[in-house]
């Protein structure tokens, strides 16, 4: 894997859009995202979007590990599951609200990250396989530890989200809740990327030896990146459980891990918003084509494979590629006029 292709300078977008006041842009995008809620009130599309944001959140954490730290984790569904089961336990047994349950989920998922930590001394494809085995093992645990997880049948009657004493009642309110959590995580990662930690991580991804020579503790950076990467997945787990009211072990199998990494790569491995774009595309293809219902997973597989052929940089590379092409065209036209 050449480091050059993964490269994304810590501050890419702002340089290009220097003339647009950044804050205005951010506010406009956020307002637009919230406006989607009332605009699609009561539609299936909104329910679909809630799932997209939840899965995108789990993928966002994975993007941090894979894209920012170069840790190819093929067992992310385990943390999605740990968060879900940890959070649901506090909801059902201790009757906590959503926010403390999210905290509990983070703690449980961090426990999982500590379990995974020894694997981090493996490199490249070996870590990928070990994390795959980790995910497969955790899935077996979820499926068999019936007293904690309900096993294959799952846990039922999970209460809907309750925030500051207000019970979130489906549809639009679900959307606002998951969107808020997602935006907070997104913002936190964006801030992290510009911090000392983000810069060290950037150095590690460019060259581990170079970073080491500059005094960066590479092993610790990898571990911290994994810890930060499991947090959104754990949050996504609780949100998924509360929005759907049920969790079953099959949601957290290795197909889910593969599908999360698919979202990250399809969206563009170096791009934070790519995680959500990938989730949108993957969910759309697997939910929407009703006309060819029996072929939609065939289509899903085909889209992944073909996308990797025509657009190896993922959806996030569409805009830069177009811009580059435009610039080439413009230069050519300019030269033509001069001649």
């Amino acid at each position: 894997m050449s480091a050059g292709e993964l490269e994304a300078a810590p501050v890419p977008a702002s340089a290009r859009l220097r003339h647009v006041p950044r804050l205005v842009l951010v506010v406009a995008v956020v307002a637009g995202l919230y406006a989607v809620g009332p605009a699609y009130r009561g539609t299936f599309f909104l329910t679909f979007l809630v799932d997209v944001v939840i899965l995108g959140l789990a993928a966002l954490g994975l993007q941090h590990m894979v894209g920012s730290a170069g840790v190819l984790n093929l067992g992310q569904a385990a943390f999605f599951g740990l968060g879900a089961y940890g959070g649901v336990w506090t909801l059902q047994h201790w009757h906590w609200g959503t926010l403390p349950a999210l905290g509990a989920a983070i703690v449980v998922a961090l426990g999982g990250a500590v379990l995974m930590a020894p694997l981090l001394r493996l490199r490249g494809v070996y870590f990928a396989m070990a994390s795959f085995a980790f995910g497969a093992m955790m899935f077996e645990v979820f499926g068999q530890a019936v007293s904690l997880t309900g096993g294959e049948n799952g846990l039922f009657l999970i209460p809907p989200p309750r925030v500051f004493g207000h019970t979130v009642m489906g549809g639009e309110e679900d959307y606002f809740l998951v969107l808020t959590v997602a935006l907070v995580c997104y913002g936190a990662y964006a801030a992290l990327a510009r911090s000392g930690y983000g810069l060290s991580l950037h150095a590690v991804r460019q060259s581990e030896n170079g970073a080491r020579a500059a005094g960066v503790n590479v092993a610790r950076m990898h571990f911290v990146a994994v810890c930060l990467g499991v947090v959104p997945a754990a949050l996504a787990g609780v949100l998924y459980a509360q929005v759907h009211g049920i969790v079953q072990a099959t949601i957290f199998d290795y197909n889910q891990s593969v599908s999360l990494i698919t979202m990250v790569i399809v969206g563009g491995v170096a791009s934070r918003w790519g995680a959500f774009a990938g989730a949108l595309l993957a969910q759309y293809v697997s939910v929407y084509p009703q006309v060819i219902a029996e072929y939609r997973f065939l289509l899903y597989g085909g889209v992944i494979a073909v996308l990797m052929i025509v657009l190896p940089g993922g959806l996030a590379s569409v805009a830069p590629a177009l811009r580059r092409r435009l610039r080439v065209l413009r230069v050519r036209r300019g030269r033509g006029a001069a001649l």
Binding site: L6, L72, A305
Partner: peptide, 11 residues
């Protein structure tokens, strides 16, 4: 990328 190849095999 190596990961693009791996993902294509998944697809």
């Amino acid at each position: 990328l190596e990961i693009a190849l791996i993902l294509a095999t998944v697809g």
